[in-house]
């Protein structure tokens, strides 16, 4: 298999393509960072963190 010789437009548009690629990469990184911050809310929360709820990490203390 042989690659076709590079068209002149690939050279001419290199800066534009590089710029768009970099911007998109940064956007993906930002959305990922936002997701991490939103999900963890600044610290590692536990879902349903109230005693007795499904998935709670706090033990249920039986009433005496």
């Amino acid at each position: 298999m042989t690659f076709k010789p590079e068209h002149e437009i690939h050279k001419r548009r290199f800066s534009r393509n590089l710029g768009v690629g970099t911007v998109l990469g940064c956007f993906v990184a930002l959305v990922f960072a936002l997701t991490v911050v939103k999900v963890t809310n600044g610290d590692m929360m536990h879902a349903n963190d109230a005693p007795g709820l499904l998935g709670s990490t706090q033990p249920i203390v039986p009433k005496p």
Binding site: I9, R13, S15, R16, G19, V20
Partner: peptide, 13 residues
């Protein structure tokens, strides 16, 4: 693609 050859190419800037 040839018809664009005469246009001033817009860079990212």
């Amino acid at each position: 693609i040839r018809s664009f050859d005469d246009m001033k190419e817009a860079g990212f800037g």
